[in-house]
Computed example of a mutant assay.
Amino acid sequence: MSAINKILVTRSCVGVWEIRSGRLLSKLADSHLGAIVTQAEITSDGRYIVSSETGKLLIWNRVSEQVLYRDDSQPGIQQLKFLDGDEKVLAISCANINRKTDDTECGDLIATARIRSIPDGALQCEFEYSFKIIPGIPFRNAIITSDNNHIVVVTIDKANKDSISIFNSSGNHIHKIALRGYNIKEVITIVPLPHKSTQIGIIGSEKGSIIDIKTKRHIRSIPKWNGSCTRDGKYAKVAEGVFTVICMFTEGDEYVLYYHSGKKTLRVFRTSNTEMIANYRMQAELTAIKSTIDGKGLVLGTVDGCLSVFSIADPEKEESYKFLADLPSRDEQWKKKLAKRKARIRFKATISLVRLCLKLYVNGVQKIDSENDL
């Protein structure tokens, strides 16, 4: 999600919202009838959107709202993730992931991972790995190490138990790490550690474990760790019994977000001194939360279908007051300013089209003249 634009995935389209003004900029769907959108990601600069729609991988130009690349050879996409500064995208799929099975666990599934460049969609590499689906646990996403050199996935060993496989950025398999000796029963998710490129966190139901993927050593176990970690190696731990708890750091690690389903509150704590600066009561159960890249705003999705955008007002930061004062909702003339900006954009677009038409016309005339001379 960029600091300006936010994308929202619905069943039938990808909605592009401008965070500051709360406007719906566009709704993207390759097929306007019967489209089923399952995944979508937007680059940090807001130029391109990669989405999965009805068994197709699509790369969109957000400004022109045109499909730049379309691929229908990878149905059942479960994950989209950017690499190398949003220049590439990793798409992981499994066509038969929803198949019926009489077993409690669905094993012997094959995931296909493909890395493509953006925006042309050229295939860079491809690899496959086996995995299983555990009832009650969604598809375990792959992760990219903090140095962008390795791709780590949750796979299975010969005994059909969870293990970890490491691939390099070219799709070559390096090695597999069995988890039986680390007292890790089942993996809920895996997370990269931003301060250690060779270490990852394996999150289970009762604890989290840190593994070195280079030496295959178990570093330490952290009880009640949900996988949240700052850039300097601080961990967020949760212990709230049966209630659903979301605990995470904002971008930049300045604040800790803590949602409690029983109290239906979202609290914001300052990381530097652990002081609570906000306690917001939700109108409905929280289903999704995301921080903007600059760490100044939050985007919340609730079970009633409401999308809300909040700014973090820290009374100890002078820039918070300026940020709030510059919001369009605080400016009575923002609609008129927005109309003027739209007019300027349309005028520049018209000039560009005219220049392109003149260039094509001149090239066509010169080609005709050269043919007549021959």
Rank of each mutant, 00 (worst) to 15 (best):
S2G: 12
I4D: 13
K6C: 02
L8W: 06
S12W: 00
C13Y: 11
I19Q: 13
R23S: 14
I36H: 15
Q39L: 15
T43Y: 12
S44Y: 10
S44H: 15
E53V: 13
S64C: 10
R70S: 14
R70Q: 14
I77S: 05
F82V: 03
D84A: 13
L90W: 02
I92T: 04
C94A: 15
N98F: 12
N98W: 09
R99H: 12
D102L: 07
D102M: 09
D103M: 08
L109F: 03
L109N: 07
A113M: 00
R114A: 02
R116F: 03
G121T: 09
L123A: 06
Y129M: 00
F131A: 03
I137D: 06
I144A: 02
N148E: 13
N149P: 09
V152Q: 04
V153S: 03
T155K: 02
D157L: 10
D162Y: 09
I177T: 12
G181P: 05
Y182D: 13
Y182A: 09
N183V: 08
L193R: 10
S197I: 04
Q199M: 03
D212F: 00
K214T: 01
K214W: 00
I219N: 05
I222L: 00
K224E: 13
S228G: 13
T230W: 07
D232N: 10
V242F: 08
T244C: 08
F249P: 01
F249M: 03
T250H: 09
D253T: 10
Y255G: 01
Y258V: 09
V268C: 09
S272V: 12
Q283S: 11
A284M: 01
I293L: 11
D294Y: 00
G305C: 05
L307P: 03
L307H: 12
S311D: 14
P315H: 07
Y321P: 04
D326P: 11
L327F: 11
D331H: 14
E332A: 01
I351T: 15
Y361Q: 15
V362Q: 10
E371D: 11
E371R: 12
